[in-house]
Design a protein around this nucleic acid. Structure first.
Lengths: 208, 208
DNA sequence: CGGCATCCGTGACGATACTG
DNA sequence: CAGTATCGTCACGGATGCCG
C-alpha cells in the first residue's frame, strides 16, 4: 500500500496526476471503461505490466474511489474490478489524450501489441449522436455506447440488445480511423465501411 | 538521454502516455503554456522536481518535438524553453485533467505550494468567448488569452496590450473558482469579482 | 487455475553538492 | 544561471511461489 506520493501543488491538474499519473493507471482505466474485468483479463490485455504493479494499482484505485472490487455470483465466482462513477468521469481525459496521440500513432510497429477493443474509444470519438453501435472486425466484435451517461462506454462481443447500427470494416481501415487520417463518415461514403440498421444513428452515418 | 520507455501498444492514448506520461512532464507543459521560461524559473515554479529530472525532461521534450530551446537576445542572454505548436496542442489534455481534478482539490493543505498563474487554466476554462483578460490578485497579476489559436495561452504580469476585460478578485474566491464550486458568471453577479472594460467580453461577463 | 505476494536486478527518482 | 555529478532510495519489470 503506497502512501500516495503527491506533487503537493494546489492545482487541479496536479491533483489529478496525484491520482492517475502513475504508470499504467490510465491504461487500466481504458480497460475498465469497457465494463467489469477480472484481474487475469486485465493482465492479459495490458502486456508488459508486472503482476505486483497491477495489483498495487488496483488497490490504489479502490482506495481512491476510482474502482470497486466485487465477487461475481456463484457460477464462475471470481473477483471483478469495475469503475466507479468517479472513475468513468475520466473518459474525457482519455479522449483528450487519445486525440492528441493520434498524430503519434503512425503505422503499427512490430513490437506493438493490439487488441480489438482498443479501437472502441477512437470509434466512439468518431461518432456523433447517441446509441449503441456494434462493430465487426475480423479480429473480433465489440460494441460502443455513444452518449452513454452511465455504465460502460464499450463492451467486448456483440451488443447485448439490438444495436442502433452495425458497422463492419477491416483492420487497416480501423487503424486509419484510429490515426485520425479519415472520418467515419467519409469511410462510409467511400464504401469501405458497411453500415446496417435503419435507426437515426445508422441513417446519420450513411448520409453524406 | 533516456531511450524512451514505451508501452508498445497500438493505441493513441498509450502513445500519448509514451511521450507525456512520465512524472513532471505535463506539469512542465502547464508552465510553458504561459510562454517561454528559463530553466531556473521552471525549477522555482515546480517545487519538488530535482534538477537532473527537470533537465532530463526538457531534453526529452525537445527531442520529441514538444519544446524548443533558444538563446535570448544579448541583453540578458539566457536560454529559454518554449512550447512548439505540437506542445501547445496538449492544452485540451491539461484542461480535461484539470476539470477532473477540481473535485479532488479541496481546501488548500499546509504542504501545498501555490503560484498565482496556476489559476490561469481554471479561469480560462471558466471563460466563454475570445479575448485577453487581465486578472488581478493580491498575490500577483497575470493575463489569459481565451480562444488563442497561437502563442501562449496565458502570461505573468499585466497584458502586453490593452486587454478586452480586467477582473479583480481575492484569493479565496480564486480557489473556489478553481474547485469548480462556482462559475465566474455567478461570482461577477454576486459582486465578489469586479470587472472593468467595455468590450463584448467584459459585457458578457457582467450580464446575468 | 485465478489472484495475488515475494524476491531480485535494473532503472527512475529526489536531494545535495559542485562546476563552467 | 544552467545545468552536471554523485549517491541513496524507491518504483518498476520479470520470474517464481503460494494458497484458495
Amino acid at each position: 500500500m503506497s502512501p500516495r506520493r503527491s506533487y503537493d501543488q494546489y492545482c487541479s491538474a496536479a491533483r489529478a496526476l496525484d491520482l492517475v499519473g502513475d504508470r499504467w493507471t490510465l491504461l487500466i482505466v481504458r480497460e475498465l471503461l469497457g465494463g467489469p474485468r477480472r484481474y487475469t483479463d486485465l493482465h492479459a490485455d495490458l502486456p508488459g505490466v508486472s503482476t505486483d504493479v497491477l495489483a498495487s494499482r488496483l488497490k490504489d484505485m479502490e482506495r481512491d474511489g476510482l474502482a470497486t472490487r466485487h465477487r461475481l455470483p456463484p457460477p464462475g465466482a471470481a473477483y471483478v474490478y469495475e469503475l466507479s462513477d468517479r472513475g468513468r468521469e475520466l473518459l474525457p481525459v482519455l479522449q483528450a489524450l487519445g486525440r492528441w496521440g493520434e498524430a503519434e500513432l503512425g503505422t503499427r510497429r512490430p513490437t506493438d501489441a493490439v487488441r480489438a477493443h482498443w479501437f472502441a474509444l477512437p470509434l466512439l470519438r468518431a461518432l456523433e449522436g447517441e446509441g449503441v453501435v456494434e462493430v465487426e472486425l475480423e479480429e473480433g466484435v465489440f460494441h460502443v455506447r455513444a452518449g452513454a451517461d452511465t455504465g460502460p462506454v464499450y463492451g467486448e462481443g456483440p451488443a447485448p440488445a439490438e444495436p442502433d447500427a452495425r458497422v463492419s470494416l477491416d483492420a487497416g481501415l480501423c487503424e486509419a480511423l484510429a490515426r485520425g487520417e479519415l472520418t467515419l463518415r467519409s469511410a462510409v461514403a467511400s464504401g469501405a465501411v458497411r453500415v446496417s440498421g435503419d435507426g437515426p444513428l445508422a441513417k446519420s452515418l450513411r448520409q453524406d
